[in-house]
């Protein structure tokens, strides 16, 4: 790729990302609900299930276990918006207009995933505040907190490229959202997000203990709480890169064929 075409590819991606962010700010309803949902999860698990029904053995009790997990779950749910946004743009015919412009084809996908990353960052900041309000007291220090946030945002960003594929094949935005449920529910609930994997039936532990969401959650939780990270940090990053390397080419190929 020549330098000038790379420059324009970046310009196109940024223009698309800016447009998506503007739309997000103009129609804040979706952002409001994207924040409300994790708040519900925080309250539900902190006070309903976390009132004693769930026992964990870590300093600070269940709230310190829960919040890092909820943050991971929130960013994963946030990456679903890539599927919805793309399906909407296809439905409206906007992508059709873009196809008749001399833009870098990838810009539609990179612009969308970048704006969803920023959206996830906004939500993450809000939920962090909520976490502190309900008694979350991580001991890992601010630098580790930032590092942990970066790890989960990176994982969610890589997942976005996979959800983009669903956005391309779904007949409309509602269907796109529905199609992501069978993926994100097992991944986030059969994981170490809400309860310790050792409390699950043994047949589930093999999956729940080793799947990527659990690895990311472990890394994030250890960094935030200041406990030993072990290999979870590298395993999480490897998962992120692996997911991106496998799914992004599939999505790009589908985009070239489908639009």
């Amino acid at each position: 790729m020549k330098f000038s075409s790379l420059k324009w590819a970046i310009n196109d991606s940024m223009t698309m990302a800016k447009r998506n962010i503007l739309a997000l700010v103009r129609v804040p309803t979706s952002l409001v609900f994207a924040v409300l949902q994790p708040i519900m999860f925080v309250l539900l698990f902190r006070y309903v299930f976390g009132g004693g029904a769930i026992q964990v053995n870590i300093p600070g009790g269940y709230v310190n276990y829960l919040i890092p997990g909820i943050l991971v779950q929130t960013t994963i749910f946030g990456s679903v918006s890539t599927a919805i946004g793309l399906a909407e743009d296809l439905e409206k015919g906007l992508i059709e207009r873009l196809r008749a412009l001399p833009i870098a084809r990838m810009a539609v996908l990179t612009g969308r995933t970048i704006s969803d990353l920023l959206r996830n960052l906004m939500i993450l900041i809000v939920i962090t505040g909520i976490g502190f309000a309900v008694g979350f007291r991580p001991g890992g220090g601010p630098l580790h907190y930032v590092e942990a946030s970066a790890i989960m945002l990176a994982f969610a960003y890589c997942l976005s490229w996979g959800f983009a594929y669903i956005g391309l094949i779904a007949p409309n935005a509602e269907a796109a959202q529905a199609m992501t449920f069978p993926l994100i529910f097992p991944l986030t609930f059969a994981s170490g997000i809400f309860v310790q994997v050792s409390s699950m039936p043994s047949w589930l532990q093999g999956f729940a203990g080793n799947q990527p969401v659990t690895m990311v959650t472990k890394a994030v939780r250890s960094l935030m709480l200041g406990t030993p990270v072990g290999n979870t940090l590298w395993v999480s990053l490897a998962w992120s890169i692996g997911v991106l390397l496998v799914l992004a080419p599939l999505t790009v190929a589908k985009f070239r064929r489908a639009t």
Partner: peptide
């Protein structure tokens, strides 16, 4: 290209739509 289904972005203003298309026209 313009058409029967005005494919402008309803979430943006008129100016922002033109600006976006202009930037995408490099």
């Amino acid at each position: 290209l313009a058409g029967q289904y005005a494919t402008v972005d309803p979430n943006l203003t008129g100016y922002e739509n033109l600006y976006m298309i202009g930037r995408l026209n490099h």
